[in-house]
Amino acid sequence: MIINNVPMKGLTSEEYEKAIKISWKPQLQYAWDNGIGIGKYLASLKEGMILAAYCQKCGRIMLPARAFCEMCWRPTDRYVTVKDTGVVNTYAICHINWDASRLKPDEPRHIPAVIEIDGASQGQGILHILGNVEPSNVKIGMKVKAVWKPAAERTGSITDIRFFEPY
């Protein structure tokens, strides 16, 4: 049987405006615990260092630091401080906000990037943002370095690194 007709027509904008609607704004606030591995990672960021975890079974130095190796499925063996430099694996130039609203023309564009950190195993990247660089000058493979907040302003957050910039 060939399906030629399907049910539902959808509301036009006008019909939607006129329709009876019930509004709800959920009040859901969460406090997410740092846990063991990420807790160490964050404490290390506060000290101005990036912390990885080492698994002696697969030999990977993993980012971010974690309590267990998800590939070998065993506890990691020790933490390793890696460099605060890396290479851009990929990046985007974002012109919208989280709610799909548009950035104003004069607002700086967001440049999220996956950065493979030097000293970690190949491919071990983290998500961060790039700064001090014209969007049009960003390239995959570009070497970048963390720009840290002053020690007194660090709180043990990924944002203790303000951004990564070319070096």
């Binding site: 329709a19 704004k25 406090a31 807790g39 989280w98 957050s157």
Partner: peptide, 29 residues
């Protein structure tokens, strides 16, 4: 290592706060 570690001081317990910032408009069907 990791799973043998424990946090001894409750002041060292950290957390991040957040929310899911959406709201809903339900039509009645």
């Amino acid at each position: 290592m990791s799973f043998k570690e424990s946090i001894q001081l409750n002041t060292q317990l950290g957390y991040f706060e957040g929310e899911i910032p959406v709201n809903y408009q339900y039509t009645l069907g």
